[in-house]
Amino acid sequence: MAHPVENLSSIKLAWAVAWSAFWTGFPFKLIVALLLLAGQVHPWEGAGLVTLLVVSIPIDIWAVGLTARTVFLERLSMEIRGPVGVSLWWQGAVLGALVLGGAYYAVGTTVAVGQKVAAAIIALIKKFYPALPIAEQITLELLLWTIPTAIVLLVFVLLWLHLFGWRVKRVVVASGQTSSASFVERVRQWDYARVPADPTLVLVSFAGVIVTLTVVFWVLLPVTTPTPHPDYPLQQVQKASKPVKPEELINKTEATLKKAEAVLAALEKEKSRETTKGKSK
């Protein structure tokens, strides 16, 4: 008898895991991206992108593991032993790299060819209908090359989902154990998988992080606009610069120190008097 997982389409299974995993990890990555932005590093290029991708790895492993377990438990009534997240993540990543490589090439070619063909078609139309207005031309040309591009892209996404679904199924077949729990119990189980072992600790550390972030935000946020209007007469705040007279400053400081010394001496005297009083008593 075929394994029950074989009844599910691999694309649907992969979608169920990948889509929820994406959104599970999203808020955490968003925070990382925002922190990078606050530090004036663009998370979409260079070092920022590398940082974001590296930080995403543990987040994704955790998210894939969590959502995969949920999907198996709820839909297939299967419990999985072992590090599902790690195993699914690296397989998905390898497949992703392969498919992305192929997609990069294919989409690039489609865009290049598509744009050429679109331009040729427009030229042809213009031959017969020279008055083709610019607005129509732009939209027509855009559609002519984006539609095939979108289709190629979709094919690659489906390809990846199919391959990933195939790997997901293998994981289930290899290490899945049928759970005897009722549906209600299974829902409860995956729901509980989302509660930390020590809620108070998590809440307190979260609150700490938020207070820290708030202070960082206050420090980073410029008081006046970082992009002033070129014509705006900015009122330069002129600080009345007091001419510093070093001699005066020294004299003043000396006087203050002397005063302080006098006060200190007086205090000590009083103290010693009090202690002697106490002793005499």
Partner: peptide, 13 residues
């Protein structure tokens, strides 16, 4: 509006 952007503290934000 320019006053809000340029003069008021955090007005731009």
């Amino acid at each position: 509006t320019q006053f809000i952007i340029h003069e008021v503290d955090y007005g731009w934000f």
